[in-house]
Design a protein around this nucleic acid. Structure first.
Lengths: 235, 235
DNA sequence: TGTACATCAGTGAACGCGCGTTCACTGATGTAC
DNA sequence: TGTACATCAGTGAACGCGCGTTCACTGATGTAC
């Protein structure tokens, strides 16, 4: 009895660990199929999971059976597409991060003056809070919960955000003929702060969200102003 | 059955030694008891829950049965003390917030110069990340998960932090003869940013934590420097 | 072209598990007299 | 003081549930010839 239990949990842990190492959507779908084609795809399962995420549901609270139910397949069919829920969750986190970065990148491309960049980006951010795609929700919610693999997946996406923001900051400051003290740190502070404020805003009514948006705009300007003045002090 | 017995006795002795003074006094214990006295207290149950929280366990992932097991009581005895796990979790969050604010308040009292206040506070913060009490872990982890009531409880504690930090900022800036643009917003930005950075640090090795500590110190100085320069611009 | 075969996505039934919750109970403690 | 009684924290057994996972299977699709 006891041994059975140990074995059971051991197996679970092993598959969990393997899931950490698995990377993305690709592998399975790129494989050549000799036999029957899938009538449901990994993407459809991911969509099913997304449809279940809501104000009080994070990816890590979803059960395999729930997702299968939402996708209209038998629970055991799930295993044809993902090793376990962790693997799906990580694929979903990566998808969310990739999609969001593209959205922000486009937003920043449209704006050129520094002030409008901050504001435009943050407006896009707040828009995404309420978007049907729920990509931002996913990143905000999974950051602190679930397996270590989840946290790593979210952290990786945030690092991408930081890197892209840093590049844009350098570009814009060069454009304005100003200097920042430490663009990397500035990008990091802004990213983390905006996500933290976003996490607060996510469940609030629209009016409160606007207030938080205004606060966040000022905060970001504070950080940039501070980095500029610290750059001057150094010179 | 045999295993259960062993677990029972082991946990009982463990919680016996773990038993410590708790700040939080539940309404239930203040009630006048006409009959038998409790042989286990709300505080012991909270302690049991705390002992279960670890790198990969947040309060909201604990089951009622787990906590009862750790406390050495039968699952149904749990109901003599709390309506459900949510009630325990919220008591725990409040306890964590209250304890932490006291710790920070003491740390800030000790320091007077502004620079050392930032550094001292953040060092205390990082210390708490690794403290056995796990108070900070609790606040960092429960912020984005679990019921709406959880989020509200954490949010309430963060608002307390902001308010106290704002007071200290005003006090210190008066001392230094400087002005901040918007002390409330500064306090908020610092609080949220520090907690966000803390959430990143919480599972990292000590060397990485030190690096994050240094980054955070600079970030906080950036915000303060920015708020000062924006105050000057306004004048 | 038709036929035999291989592939494998999806299935239904079953499993053992830990869970929250309920019930009627026990018996130690405190109280009234 | 002793005795009868009330209170109620803690209990053991039981419940129904949803869960992850397994198994042997079915049958549609694609392929070889």
């Amino acid at each position: 009895m006891y041994t059975d239990q140990v074995l059971y949990f051991r197996c679970k842990t092993v598959t969990g660990t393997l899931a950490q190492e698995s990377i993305l959507l690709g592998a399975k779908n790129e494989r050549i199929h000799a036999g029957r084609k899938a009538v449901i795809s990994r993407e459809e399962l991911i969509d099913a999971a997304r449809s279940l995420i809501g104000p009080n549901r994070s990816v890590s609270t979803l059960s395999l059976r729930e997702v299968a139910r939402a996708a209209g397949i038998a629970p055991n069919s799930f295993y044809r597409h993902f090793r376990d829920m962790d693997e799906l969750a990580i694929a979903l986190i990566d998808l969310a991060g990739t999609s969001l970065r593209q959205i922000f990148s486009e937003a920043r491309q449209r704006a050129t003056a520094e002030r409008s960049v901050v504001r435009t980006s943050l407006e896009v951010f707040m828009e995404q809070l309420n978007a049907d795609e729920r990509f931002l929700d996913i990143l905000l919610r999974e950051g602190k919960v679930g397996s270590e693999a989840f946290n790593l997946a979210v952290e990786r996406q945030l690092l991408f955000f930081e890197a892209e923001l840093k590049n844009d900051l350098l570009r814009l400051e060069a454009l304005n003929g100003k200097k920042l003290f430490d663009a990397e740190l500035v990008a990091r502070a802004i990213t983390r702060l905006v996500f933290a404020m976003g996490a607060v805003a996510v469940n609030l009514p629209s009016a409160e969200q606007s207030k938080l948006l205004e606060q966040t705009v000022v905060m970001v300007h504070m950080i940039i102003a501070g980095a500029r003045s610290m750059a001057l002090d150094k010179t």
